[in-house]
Design a protein around this nucleic acid. Structure first.
Lengths: 341, 341
DNA sequence: TTCGATTCCGGCAACGTTACCGGCAACCAT
DNA sequence: ATGGTTGCCGGTAACGTTGCCGGAATCGAA
């Protein structure tokens, strides 16, 4: 019922001008302590809240960050919480949009957020995106853009990510050390940087241990449980089937696990399995799946911090690139050797 | 670099007035077809986008819905996607805030969204909330509020939920029919309506089958895997331990499962288990856990639709209450009898 | 007494948009 | 011709806020 109070209401009630009220409410210089006190008291009484719309319109800043993510699975939703936490602290509001891994949707989200006049973007790109013109358009408007988690070399922007190569490396080396000989990798979509980096780590580990890479053991498939399931079935149907699988996500690891069980094979005895992301589900299934853990919440926080930094010194856009370290969590699915003390 | 074009720019370039441009861009009545065409063409060329801030300020509508959820777990994130889908279609933007099940945070979220001048709220209440004054304040401002999933009798508002009583009933009756005799229930926090309704369903099923209710078998604990784990351990340590457990969420079911395994008991032979929500994890663990499925995505869509309705005829605020039906999914954890054809 | 400095305040314009009102032609019917 | 209708357009105010400028009042000092 009650319309929210405005500066005008306060001014009228105190018989002073709008300008004075406005100054009293914030600057405090150039205003009589008594009137200031009176204004404060009345604004309290009327429960005055500055109208953000008017403010934003005036100073051309909405204090809003547009966040675009491919989905809100366990890891990304943790990251978003990290972003949210830091942003809130700094007086920003975040608007989260899901692209659902769709390129078209991502463009739509960008446009929508641009229309909402966000002050900048924090982005994790969709796996479907091969063109990045829509993001470049943002930068042309001189709005800060920070890329996180799913970074891409095709977009020049400050970024925060984990060391995916390292992750792929430790996962693979662990399998090698456990005595697995034919290690397959379920890589994600080919154009996704994250996917390729993890695979590079895999390749590096092979090279280090002088294992020849076998193209038949490298399978690209969609970031998805069902695809992983069928891909694994095919792998297991090979004449010389792999004796271990590294999947670049836990979703895919689950798919692989189901396929392995379906074939009646045992983990870790017949097949070793390591996933990526360390989603809670990996510790719940039987056998529990080894996985590469990443500091998701921290990563989100770092992204938001970097965004705010970038925002404050726009000229100094020299592309900071922050890289966090992943950590392998070993569970039953890959623990073939007895645990050495 | 380029500042976005405004109506003023168009007017200047065409040597006509602001008003005419404004009318040409939308109303189309009262404006010469030729000038209209010219305006359209130029606005296209300049890539004109109406400034939402100015619009909102002018017409006192932001076309934004504030959504407050206790968390973004599997079920709620599905619901939010449902809300998003319908809202977008109707030209609304949603701002999602997580209360993290915290009362204080919920108040903070409310205030923030109110400051952002959202047009209304779609809310699922935190489990910690016992007072609802902050929500009532919204209603006093004459903003539409729709409650979904976690409804509460203490807040008078249109709502969308599933039939939790029914869900509790079918889950419990299923356990009874499978031959379980001492059925315990892990209920959630006591003040949470959802929790109590599901428990009511449990009680109704007992009553129907003439089983005496045993207070020792009714355990309230936090909505949380760890609490459920310990609560289950205690249940299993009883002299006359239960032979089945119904948990009102899958998180709790997981906790219960871990406790049951820890004790070396078998499901479904020694203990039957049914959860609630039908999260994907229930089908992945061993044994797969029976669970009550709910149409989450649909529920979200229904909530958004109801919101938009409520928004359009505010006077007609006669508290529509929409109830969707849950559905029991039977899996290994409760399938004691052979499946009858 | 006069002048400059200081303190405090109000008016105006602007951010980008639209609602409202009024005005000027041109047309038609009387 | 006159008056009313219609089609088209422009000016103004307003949404709530702040930045800028100028001005009045007061005070201290020369």
């Amino acid at each position: 019922m009650e319309k929210p109070a405005t500066i005008k209401d306060i001014a009228k009630r105190l018989n002073i001008s709008l300008s004075t009220v406005s100054r009293a409410l914030r600057n405090a210089s150039d205003v009589n302590p008594d009137t200031k006190k009176a204004v404060m008291a009345l604004s309290e009484e009327l429960n005055y809240q500055p109208n953000k719309l008017a403010l934003s319109l005036r100073q051309k800043q909405t204090h809003t960050i547009g966040v675009i993510v491919p989905n809100l699975d366990y890891v990304l939703s943790l990251m978003v919480r990290g972003i949210d936490e830091v942003a809130l602290e700094a007086g920003f509001t975040v608007m989260v949009c899901q692209s659902n891994e769709s390129f078209g949707r991502e463009i739509l989200n960008t446009r929508r957020l641009l229309e909402s006049l966000v002050d900048g973007f924090i982005i994790s790109v969709s796996s479907e995106s091969k063109s990045f013109e829509h993001f470049k358009k943002i930068q042309e408007r001189n709005l800060p853009v920070v890329v996180f988690d799913r970074v891409t070399p095709h977009l020049t922007a400050p970024s925060v990510r984990i060391d995916n190569e390292e992750g792929g490396f430790v996962a693979t080396e662990h399998l090698i050390e456990q005595g697995y000989k034919r290690i397959a990798v379920l890589a994600g979509p080919e154009n996704l940087g994250v996917s390729n980096s993890r695979m590079d780590g895999y390749l590096n580990a092979l090279k280090k241990h002088k294992i020849k890479k076998d193209p038949a053991l490298i399978v690209h498939c969609d970031f998805n449980q069902d695809y992983a399931y069928f891909a694994t079935l095919e792998l297991l149907a090979m004449k010389k089937r792999p004796d271990a699988i590294f999947t670049i996500s836990d979703r895919m690891a689950i798919g692989a696990m189901l396929a392995i069980k379906k074939k009646g094979l045992r983990m870790p005895e017949d097949i070793g399995l390591v996933g990526f992301n360390n989603e809670p589900v990996t510790s719940l299934v039987t056998p529990a799946i080894s996985s590469v853990d990443m500091p998701s919440f921290e990563l989100g926080k770092a992204a938001a911090k970097l965004f705010i930094e970038t925002m404050h010194n726009k000229e100094n856009m020299d592309l900071e690139e922050k890289v966090l370290k992943p950590k392998l969590i070993i569970r039953e699915s890959s623990q073939k050797l007895p645990i050495k003390k």
